[in-house]
Simulated assay, not measured.
Amino acid sequence: MNLQSFREAAWNGLWRQNTGLVQLLGLCPILAVSTSIVNAASLGLATVMVMAVSNLAVASLRNFIPYEIRIPVFILIIAALTTVVDLAFNAYFHDLYLVLGIFIPLIVTNCIVLARVEAYAAKNDPVSSTVDGIMMGLGLVCLLSVLGGLRELAGNGTLFSGIEMLFPGLSPISVFGPDYPGFLIGILPPGAFFTLACLIALSNVIRTRAAKRKSAAQGPMAPAADQPASAA
């Protein structure tokens, strides 16, 4: 995998084909867990680990998996890796594990993971498939972190609430002070829909403007060489 292919995979995962902003996959954990940066980013990183290793495993075994049973085999691989991640969270980050609850095991049914395994890893080499899994997962982490940060800031006036579950010596940042009354809808499920919709709209505006600038920079298309010139 050369540098150009790596850049293409990174750009696709982080922006062009972002799983949350463009493909709109895996909305259940995106909307349910994004009440704070810590919760959102933690689940996103757990998903990255499952996606990277499952892409590597499927790409390495793709020539040995019969086409007719590929989906059950893919799900079995994803389920085994998700179990490992689930047990690791329970062992090393038990408080965070209790907060995330059922959403770590639900990575098995996350359509983001299965979609990349089926669409990319089953057709490409192990190195590029692993990079694709990591970058697609990091795109999800970025979206979850921004969404969780905006909701936490609006709802509680803080950032990194729950950071002590990962790093016991740290404490959350109070942005608006202790007298901030809070905006309840920010941390409720409707707030997730509203915030995600605003982020999708913002990304669409950015993409549209970028396309217009690119079109303007290219200028008018030159006439084809074999096209006859118009009469004076």
Rank of each mutant, 00 (worst) to 15 (best):
G137Q: 10
V108W: 05
I71Y: 12
I71G: 04
V108M: 11
L96P: 05
L96A: 03
A115E: 11
G155K: 02
N90V: 00
L76V: 07
F93E: 12
L96K: 10
V131Y: 07
E118M: 13
V127H: 08
E152G: 03
N156V: 04
P105D: 12
A79D: 07
V73M: 10
E68D: 09
V131R: 03
C142P: 00
D125H: 05
L147E: 12
I71W: 10
N63S: 15
L147W: 03
E68N: 09
A121Y: 01
G101P: 01
A79M: 12
A80Q: 06
N110W: 07
G139F: 04
L76F: 14
L138W: 04
L96Q: 15
Y97G: 14
G157A: 12
F160G: 02
T82F: 07
L138D: 02
V141R: 13
Y120D: 02
G133N: 03
G137V: 07
G139Y: 06
T158C: 08
L76E: 01
S128Q: 11
I77Q: 05
G133E: 03
V108K: 09
Y67T: 13
T158H: 09
L144F: 14
I71C: 05
I78C: 03
A80N: 07
G157E: 10
G101I: 02
V85I: 15
D132R: 02
A80P: 04
V117Y: 00
V117F: 01
S128V: 08
L147P: 05
I104K: 11
L98Y: 00
S128F: 10
D86L: 04
I112R: 06
S145W: 13
G148R: 04
I102S: 11
E68C: 02
F93P: 06
R151K: 04
D86M: 05
G157M: 08
L143Q: 11
Y120E: 03
A122I: 00
N124L: 02
A79W: 04
L150H: 00
R116Y: 12
L100F: 03
L144V: 03
P105F: 11
